[in-house]
Design a protein around this nucleic acid. Structure first.
Lengths: 339, 339
DNA sequence: CTGTTAGCGCCTTCAT
DNA sequence: ATGAAGGCGCTAACAG
């Protein structure tokens, strides 16, 4: 027996207590190999009596495969990523795998640091937001040999597996829809100071279609703040104050757009008569609003689930990285009352 | 050199490459002990050349203190807990400590399992939501000797450190305020099927004051669904359909209450003339709504930060557990237009 | 300033 | 069905 009072009991302690070898304890605890019923019970009792808890640092160090998956998130302040994380956590938990995460705050440099730190835990896989990363990030991941999944976006070249939607196409679809409804004079409202690369792609797609239709992009306003309803309301108010205010606003996401709706409700501005709005994400709370926002619904839980399965499958991909899978999870344009 | 192509390089590999002992590599990598400038550079170059990444499983196993803190969250679907997690992550990241989390779905039994799994990682501390846990959960934590912090609530007996607010008092404060405004016929709307123990405490406090004032608690409706604006809107609609509809509704949180506001806005129900509402949390998005909800603002980021500092401080608490700290982080009643 | 020795707790491999 | 030996990669504690 050890001396330190708080030192957790080890398999050796149990072995002595149960009068068997440490190896037998290991076998019993994992349910591996053959063990006699009688020995098993003795060991289990001893373990319970001593309050034994496996040390996963030790087992993970010894085994080939670590029961860890690393996850990088741009922020925790946006439901979208909580939902991706929920999907990931759900399916990892089912496989007895622990997620470890880091928050990049939409910075690729920060992401690089985080990736390095997370790789030190020898995860079996890593999940990244988007397809854009620094060369060093890619190099570190390649060198480590862990499986990678990139979520949210499929417009670009993935390192290995990508599970998301075409952000540019989402922007195009929104533009086409708004053009069909007869709007000609558009504005764009975004946030995160352009650091949200997926939002930028949506805007590109949107603008491309608007331009080709010969319609007008009157305004492109991107604040530096994180996206939120409050920010969206404020920005909408500013934009509508201008003499050249557009007749339709495309927002980089639902939170901003919902803020816009709130501004209109508060100020008696007719939607979509005086102002048409469109968002992105298809967050659940939109259904509670007095005016339904036209938006694009994305499968966020699925992105998490698919990514978790992908990095977790033992399907060999060590050599060659030939198995590049791009999975378009698709989106759905939700036709609301806002345009 | 090793053979496996994907096997990550170890300190031994670098040692050979740099022509020094493995111990020297260890010293250089940690910046510990004395190393000559020249050797340091050789080692650092070799490390960079081979793409060395420290193996934290190994270092954590060897050292006394693990750079991990375990966190249990009731759900990721509620901003409140994302914010607590943000506060935690923020301050842990600064100390090079990695959070590992599990989601309990508001179940104490699930929490017990999660705690057991998380303790296997030998974290230096664990953060739990609320003060209610199974005996087994408490026993496992005590036996492990890790530091514990309980967040959100301070109404009860904490295991060691508690960082939160008095939930009952929050309920009382809301009741007092509504009584002052002249309301006499109340209703309560909650969710999570009563599994949210903090919400239950708020309701108790609320009801206590209402009863003592001789006012009426006409209705107590708790749905089984997770809390959301949509659910709040639906429940509010149901409640107002009844012949005995109350004049004022206390919601278990802002999401539900905001749903109530949306119902009223959509149906031309005067707030607070025909219906008064109060929520809880003080979420930022409330400021964007056309009608300001009266609510209680809570310091969620701080709860996370304080908890992180607490479980992370090396201040000895191994023996005796005498250092029970209860920190009331306080709340603020936000006087809106909804009552 | 650098190297050697030992061992963290567990699991793989090979005996028996 | 069980045990003994060895080592995963790293760092503490001593040499030198």
């Amino acid at each position: 027996m050890r001396l330190g009072k708080t030192a957790a009991p080890t398999m050796d302690d149990i072995a002595i207590e149960a009068g068997v070898s440490q190896m037998t304890v290991s076998r019993v605890m994992r349910g591996a190999g053959k063990t006699s019923r009688e020995v098993r019970e003795r060991v289990e009792q001893a373990a319970r009596r001593l309050g034994y808890v496996q040390n996963r640092l030790a087992s993970a160090l010894r085994e080939e495969m670590t029961p860890l998956v690393a996850v990088v998130l741009p922020t925790l302040g946006n439901r979208v990523f909580s939902e991706v994380l929920t999907g990931l956590n759900e399916t990892l938990t089912g496989k007895m795998i622990q997620p470890v995460f880091g928050v990049s705050e939409y910075s690729l440099e920060r992401e690089e640091e985080i990736v390095r730190e997370l790789l030190a835990w020898r995860p079996r896989g890593i999940v990244l937001p988007g397809l854009e990363h620094t060369d060093a990030t890619r190099a570190a991941i390649r060198a480590s040999g862990v499986r990678v999944a990139e979520v949210m976006d499929i417009d670009g070249v993935p390192m290995s597996g990508a599970f998301g939607i075409s952000q540019a196409e989402a922007g195009r679809a929104t533009a086409r829809y708004m053009l069909e409804r007869g709007y000609r004079r558009f504005g764009y409202i975004g946030s995160q100071g352009g650091r949200d690369l997926r939002a930028a792609k949506r805007y590109s797609g949107f603008w491309e279609v608007i331009r080709e239709a010969g319609a007008q992009m009157a305004l492109h306003q991107v604040s530096d703040a994180p996206s939120s309803m409050v920010e969206g309301r404020k920005m909408t108010a500013d934009v509508l104050d201008r003499s050249d205010a557009p007749e339709a606003l495309y927002y980089s996401n639902d939170d901003l757009a919902a803020g816009g709706i709130m501004h209109c409700l508060s100020n008696g501005i007719d939607i979509p008569g005086s102002l048409a709005l469109a968002g992105f994400n298809g967050l659940a709370f939109l259904e509670a609003l007095p005016i339904r926002l036209t938006t694009i619904e994305t499968p966020r839980l699925d992105m998490g689930r698919r990514a978790a399965l992908y990095v977790t499958n033992s399907r060999n991909s060590q050599d060659g990285w030939a198995d590049t899978d791009v999975v378009d999870l698709g989106f759905r344009l939700v036709h609301g009352d806002s345009c």
